[in-house]
Design a protein around this nucleic acid. Sequence first.
DNA 1: TGATTGGGTACCATTTTAGTCCTGTATAAA
DNA 2: TTTATACAGGACTAAAATGGTACCCAATCA
Lengths: 154, 154
Amino acid sequence: MLKLSRLTDYAAVVMAQIARYPHKPHAAAELAQAVTLPQPTVSKTLKMLVRAGLLVSQRGAQGGYCLARPASQITAADIIAAIEGPVAMTECSQAEGDCELAATCGVSDNWQRVSLAIRSLLDSVTLAHLADTAPIKLPVQLPIQSISLAAESA
Amino acid sequence: MLKLSRLTDYAAVVMAQIARYPHKPHAAAELAQAVTLPQPTVSKTLKMLVRAGLLVSQRGAQGGYCLARPASQITAADIIAAIEGPVAMTECSQAEGDCELAATCGVSDNWQRVSLAIRSLLDSVTLAHLADTAPIKLPVQLPIQSISLAAESA
DNA sequence: TGATTGGGTACCATTTTAGTCCTGTATAAA
DNA sequence: TTTATACAGGACTAAAATGGTACCCAATCA
């Protein structure tokens, strides 16, 4: 289904929640309550986001989590990567030379292009967009034939 | 990682292989050999593709698999859907009302838009493109601000 | 009639995912 | 200085998805 994992989904929701009140630290318990999810799970997600550098944490009383940078500078791709690792549609599009089928498959080049296009789409969507209740404006897909700018050839 | 499952990858490779020689039926064993994958696995994949209506099969001696329609009318989204089910990034973007967090999450609308954009990207890539050894021309992502066409608001 | 080739299903092993818990450490306030 | 608060890290378990295989049946053609 090309689906995000559940944790990634949680991460987005939690990040959005923080983004809406960016000026105070948010404790895990508070966030868990706000998004009605079990606390340990939310905690786990938060830790991953810190390790990825998207959140900063403050220990101790009155501590909690804050965005590491403005919501407009955190992308959907960042959040996905924080939980699931780098966005890549196929095995071979993440690391070079790992796929010993490359010779017979003859599809990898084009998959990688698709992967890249999705990646750049996700790069263009920021947390500020996600957290906004108004709809994001996304490019509508034009027919391929009408597009002049092409990916570089391999 | 937002990754395709391995079977989906196989499916694309196998479909591309058939697309390159569209005029004769291809036996599972022949295809397995061509793409150097175990035969039972290739068979399984082929069966799924038939059930999804992307391939037609012919039993008996000299039988095999053919494309159900021209490669230019089979999309990447079709292939993915055949193996993994409909393309949808989040739980709530596939079926309405299944996500009881919708009230607190406040992100679902925008995720759905992103999901739709990816979907239309995948709809625009055909098997003919994938099977082609020349690079596909894909739209380069423009900055969101510069895009005038917006998704309909909910 | 028998060889060939796909169809369907059930099954198993492995990996991934989700979720929980425990113990340790930093911080702020009393 | 003490104590309550809150994050850090890792281990562990349960459940689900995934990948792969095997088996037997049905259709087709020579």
